[in-house]
Amino acid sequence: MIKDTLLVLFALAGAPLLGGFMAGIDRRITARLQARFGPPIMQPFYDVAKLFGKQMIVPNSWQVFCAYVYLVGAVLSVVLFFLQSDLLLIFFVQAVGAVFLVLGGMAVPSPYAQVGAQRELIQVLTYEPLLILVFVTIYSVTGSFKISAIYAHEAPLLKELPLIFIVLTYALTIKLRKSPFDFSTSHHGHQEIVKGVLTEHSGPILGLIEVGHWYETVLILGLCALFWATSPVGMIILITATYFAELIVDNAMARMTWRWMLGYVWSVGLAMSVINIIWLYAK
């Protein structure tokens, strides 16, 4: 019980710190990759603090509602993750956040936000089946959807599910809004249809979304870490390597279209999942 309480507290307080910190590293490394010096590591925290200090401007009250629900969904999914509950449950709770992000974007008839929201829907459409397949294959290895079963599993999942891990990183790239998949909205310096789904969010409301995004980052990196759940060092190595690879991909790739994404990610993702599963059964 005490352990659970500590985990919940860590999820609530630690996750945004971790997520913000990751975002800071992201901007710093991206800058370095572009031969720039880059902002301080603390920059995402300054940004969010500033946003909370700005005047409240909203298009309507529904957007405020959506932003808060998005945050609630993101936080709850991280808490469930730290409590080692059912992977599918975590996924569905995270979908609450995802849908309210879209609804928040669609709250106004603004063309930029509308197009962004539609694209966000396509992004969700792209990664959802892949994530479910990832969870199902994890189930076929560990015999359970619960995260606790992954920790109980003696070998790292990465050994048995290497291709599935790559499929997960596709979902990670989409979720982090990295190139080539950053067309529903984009990150810091970049612009796409102004700011896509987030165009009409501003000030404290945008701050909430940003914090929610940190939670989501932690969730999805946590999912990656599960593939080397047998050792804490392994988890850190895996997260670091994956995140660094994400940054390289982000900086090396151009932004593509949603048609390309849907076709490419579904076909490659499904093919890799099937190959991995056949390999699993053949072994």
Binding site: A95, L103, M106, A117, L125
Partner: peptide, 9 residues
């Protein structure tokens, strides 16, 4: 998700 999400939106 897309079918319902866009309608609610």
């Amino acid at each position: 998700f897309v079918v319902w999400g866009r309608w609610a939106g």
